[in-house]
């Protein structure tokens, strides 16, 4: 009889002795693939000017009609982007977005990039409309924010394709994923572009309970 009970519990006990597969989100976050398509970011040039030129091609490509762009015109006194045109308003409705990445593909200046943040939830529909201020990354350290008071850079002939240096340099924390190993990232520096207000106290790691990623591995 006892043997029968053990037999019946065999699978349970087997799993009880194994390493658990549950990941304790949000304390533990699994890293994403390099080409994971998470929340959008609007990038900047190294000199702090916005890459986005407000051309609306992302909105045209968007199959979910999630993007609204209102263009404006740059002046030397008030310059947002290198050329004539910039995005005065740029909004993405994250409830509509299906994260297909077509906007990224359509963008002629590599301004919009679907990054690795997937924590996009809110208590209201209004808060799910991400404005330009929320999407735009901050300027590099020591570089002034837009609008800048600067003349237009000299025109470039578009013969050689311009690559996006920011995109290449970026490596996710913990390196690129090679296997599904959960890595503990809580307590690491919160990305500055994660503009959803983060309650610092709530996210400080609990030292005793939370094992580090290395231990787990």
């Amino acid at each position: 009889m006892f043997a029968q009970i053990l037999k019946g519990l065999r699978t349970t006990l087997e799993w009880g002795l194994k390493k658990p597969v549950t990941i304790e989100y949000p304390d533990i976050k699994r890293p994403v693939f390099e080409r994971f398509r998470g929340r959008h970011e609007l990038k900047r040039h190294p000199n702090g000017l916005e890459r986005c030129i407000g051309c609306s091609l992302c909105a045209a490509a968007c199959p979910a009609d999630a993007i609204y762009v209102e263009p404006g015109e740059n002046t030397d006194e008030e310059r947002y982007s290198p050329g004539e045109r910039y995005a005065k308003r740029y909004e993405i409705n994250m409830l509509r977005c299906i994260f297909c990445g077509f906007c990224e593909e359509a963008c002629p200046v590599d301004a919009i990039v679907l990054e690795h943040n997937y924590e996009i939830s809110s208590y209201s529909r209004e808060a799910m409309i991400y404005t330009k201020e929320m999407l735009l990354v901050p300027p590099p350290p020591g570089v002034p924010d837009t609008p800048q008071r600067t003349p237009a850079p000299p025109p470039q002939d578009m013969e050689a394709p311009v690559s996006n240096p920011q995109r290449v340099e970026r490596t996710p924390p913990g390196g690129y994923i090679t296997s599904y190993v959960p890595v503990h990232v809580v307590g690491e520096e919160v990305h500055p572009w994660l503009l959803n207000p983060v309650d610092e106290e709530e996210h400080t790691p609990r030292p005793a309970e939370a094992p580090s990623g290395e231990e787990r591995a």
Binding site: G54, S56, A59, A60, P71
Partner: peptide, 9 residues
């Protein structure tokens, strides 16, 4: 109409 909208919109 300068930079007001794209024509397809």
């Amino acid at each position: 109409f300068r930079f007001k909208a794209r024509v397809w919109e």
